[in-house]
Simulated assay, not measured.
Amino acid sequence: MPPPLPEPQYSVRRRVLPSHLTALHSTQGTHLLLEALTNNSAAAYIPLTEHFCNQSDPAFCGITTLLMVLNAFAVDPMVRWKGGWRYFGDETVLLSQCCLSAELVRRVGVTMEQLQQLAVCHGLRVQMERPITHNNEQLFRTHVKECLQPTEHPSAMLVVSYARSALGQTGEGHFSPLAAYHEASDQVLLLDVARFKYPPYWVPVSELYQAMTWIDKVTAQSRGWYVMRPPLLSSSYKGVPIVSEERRPASLVPLAGQSVSRCPLHPVKIDFCQAVRPRNVRRTKS
């Protein structure tokens, strides 16, 4: 286990958003959102804001982002959060049956590959991309339009991994979901899961793409983005009204964190999990 991060030298209430980024709560930011909603280019905004939450630890940005996407897709965690509720109520539910321990993530964060594997373990279909060449900006733009202004009911979420410093912010690598696209100004709405640090904000697509080209010291590769889709058998995210509470006897559904020995694949999952890899480089928190 890597050592924990050192204690902070001073306390911070919040960070000041760089002036070239537009806060959602500003007059201009609200206007951009209203226009995006009117133009049907904010497909992910309502599903994500219904489950929008603050990362509970400075290193949990990737985990919290995935938690929001799983809840937006109404994925069943198969464990109980509190009482009888099957819901990703916090990051510990997501990590409770995972090979990645919460303490390890708390100390070093997660890589793009680890987050992809974790999403797949929870049933999502994930397409991970990196800006290998400058031509990949067009691919990113294609995914922006497919996810945020789909011709039919939205069936995918767009998550980005970018360098904060490239946008004039403090910190290094960070994960967050995109919620809307304003085509006239060519900006996307980024729902920053570090709500204690920066508000949701609009960022030009080209600037965000460039922020994803910066190299991650841990993997020696650029950062990038994901197109996350719900499980094939899921219909809860396709506009189908909820008509069932999907009740099960509580005795058959363990609480998050309880040992689940009934699963015959559990040892196999541990032995072959691709997310667990030794890492020697420490990661700066969000």
Rank of each mutant, 00 (worst) to 15 (best):
residue 248 R to F: 10
residue 211 A to T: 05
residue 162 Y to Q: 00
residue 194 A to F: 06
residue 186 D to W: 00
residue 164 R to F: 07
residue 191 L to I: 01
residue 260 V to I: 14
residue 229 R to D: 00
residue 223 R to E: 10
residue 203 V to G: 13
residue 273 C to T: 06
residue 174 H to S: 05
residue 170 T to S: 13
residue 177 P to N: 04
residue 220 A to D: 15
residue 214 W to Y: 11
residue 270 I to Y: 07
residue 207 E to T: 06
residue 167 L to H: 09
residue 230 P to A: 15
residue 179 A to P: 04
residue 271 D to I: 02
residue 212 M to S: 15
residue 214 W to F: 10
residue 208 L to E: 13
residue 165 S to H: 14
residue 220 A to C: 14
residue 250 A to M: 09
residue 205 V to I: 05
residue 167 L to A: 08
residue 244 S to A: 12
residue 173 G to C: 09
residue 197 K to T: 06
residue 194 A to C: 05
residue 177 P to T: 02
residue 256 A to L: 05
residue 251 S to G: 08
residue 176 S to V: 00
residue 183 E to Q: 12
residue 197 K to V: 06
residue 179 A to I: 01
residue 212 M to D: 13
residue 202 W to V: 03
residue 246 E to W: 07
residue 253 V to S: 11
residue 267 P to V: 05
residue 168 G to V: 02
residue 252 L to R: 10
residue 243 V to L: 14
residue 231 P to E: 00
residue 204 P to A: 14
residue 203 V to K: 07
residue 248 R to N: 10
residue 246 E to R: 10
residue 271 D to M: 11
residue 238 K to S: 14
residue 163 A to W: 09
residue 270 I to H: 12
residue 192 D to T: 01
residue 265 L to F: 13
residue 270 I to R: 13
residue 247 R to Y: 10
residue 183 E to F: 00
residue 196 F to H: 09
residue 205 V to N: 11
residue 219 T to D: 14
residue 181 Y to D: 04
